[in-house]
Nucleic acid binder design. Structure first.
Lengths: 274, 274
DNA sequence: CTTTTGGTTCCATTATTCGGAACCTGGTTT
DNA sequence: AAACCAGGTTCCGAATAATGGAACCAAAAG
């Protein structure tokens, strides 16, 4: 039940919970959602606000994630993310194939998108970067899961909600494991409208030469524009891009980002962060 | 000397310090830079790593800001920032005048850029977003300072380093206050190559109808392309954009982001975050 | 082989956090 | 108008977690 890590852990857990709402929340809402008694929660929130990790709207009495996070994230993104390294390669790829390319990493058993490049459409989608999504039903998620060390895979799979988003969603660990075997064999994964109807993608993992998982790369399209058979031929191009990224990462020595088991459940289902 | 807020405050202070390095750092480097004894710092870092607020590269023994921040920042950016609201207006402005437009807010006495649109280049996300810069020597910083409530201004000014970046940098509080008076009078501010040689800009504050400061807006150019006299005519257009943003913010009721005095010095000078 | 440097662990002391309960609002009901 | 709530906020002794000096360890340097 406890997050561990004493006070800091608790405070950050609250921060996560507030963020998970995806909108400003009242004290009592957080209270209902948290294991702490009134007084304790109150103090924790006060601290977070005072630290500018949360902002408090006095007139409405609501809490929202704070501006200090934006500043910190800038550093995190540039130094602990595949994105800046991958960008030149991803740009080239996006330009060449004219579809949207995503770069993601695993974070706490979920897919965390760290960059997005669409060549054609002049992008309006608000900062996709930082969004999280489920691992078990996205192409990029499955591509990464397939190449996770087995002990970690066990943990990560235990954290999946297997919520049925579409008729094609794989909703059992067994089915997923079976597909992961196939992905491992051929080296790329598909999203067959498993997360959103009409949205398909092909994805590959980014692996070091020794096989350590760094992240993933995906090309997304719609069933209106293309079919899976149009995406499959892109596999080699994706793989070469991934290899190039991995090579760069190797030389720049990229820190180990493999998720580590933590007590405490992962957020859950619908929470594709708004 | 103390940051206040007990353990959480200390942990976050460490997080800031690590981030401020702008590169992966060794334990001992953080130790030199921090007021805590070895054992304490060690535990603090452990906690942060365990919480994924930092990542630890075991092979190099270095710490860097963690991936969890990227995820949290996404929420912060969408809900506690002017950026998403401002974007349509800023897009229009950028397209119209063909120069780079920045959106910023004040955070802890510094300028925090929350969005950037350059008409030419497609888009940047967190790469630019989240950067911080000095308030006393940027156009957008001065535009915001000028419209800060006086008691806050006192505090914010006391936090400025007044480092001389260029020959044009205002390096005294008195000189700055004088210029702020002028800015307050005419409603817009210039950056006369005060932060970077060759870079000029015109900026305006984003104010609610009642005069509460929400953020700032700036158009940047280079002395090669334009002179200040070319920028001045843009002032009305900038002001109308700012007004429109403020109107939207009002109806969506934007939380109060005015910086609040905190014990503890602001980072310092050169740290325009890499 | 000895010393130094950089990092990790121990553990009794000390300072913080905890949380039940009391206490404020301001708004509703009887 | 008195009684009653439903959020919030504050108190304070008890419970717990953080503290940091010192010892320890490993690897590099002398």
């Amino acid at each position: 039940m406890a997050t561990g890590d004493g006070t800091v852990g608790k405070a950050l857990e609250i921060l996560d919970r507030v963020a998970a709402f995806g909108r400003p929340v009242r004290f009592s809402e957080v209270l209902d959602d948290s294991p702490y008694p009134k007084a304790t929660l109150y103090r924790l929130l006060q601290t977070l606000v005072h630290q500018r990790m949360l902002t408090f709207d006095a007139e409405r009495g609501t809490y929202a994630p704070g501006i200090r996070l934006v500043r910190l994230a800038h550093n995190a993104w540039t130094h602990s993310t595949l994105a800046p390294l991958a960008r030149p390669h991803v740009d080239a790829l996006a330009a060449e194939i004219g579809e949207t390319v995503h770069v993601a990493q695993l974070d706490h058993a979920q897919v965390l998108y760290v960059d997005k490049r669409s060549s054609a459409v002049p992008v309006e989608m608000i900062s996709q970067t930082g969004k999280v999504g489920p691992a078990y039903c996205t192409g990029i998620g499955k591509a990464m899961l397939a190449f996770l060390p087995l002990d970690l895979l066990d943990w990560v799979l235990s954290q999946q909600s297997f919520h049925r988003f579409t008729p094609h969603t794989l909703t059992s660990e067994k089915a997923l494991r079976h597909e992961l075997d196939e992905i491992r064999a051929c080296g790329h994964a598909f999203d067959r409208e498993e997360h959103e109807p009409g949205i398909i993608c092909i994805a590959v993992p980014v692996l070091t030469p020794e096989g350590r998982l760094l992240g993933g790369l995906s090309v997304t399209s719609t069933t209106r524009r293309r079919g899976l058979e149009d995406l499959e031929p892109l596999a080699p191009r994706l793989k070469s891009t991934a290899a190039r990224i991995a090579a760069d990462a190797e030389s720049w020595h990229f820190p180990d980002q493999t998720p580590k088991p933590t007590p405490g459940r992962v957020r859950d289902l619908t929470e594709t962060t708004q």
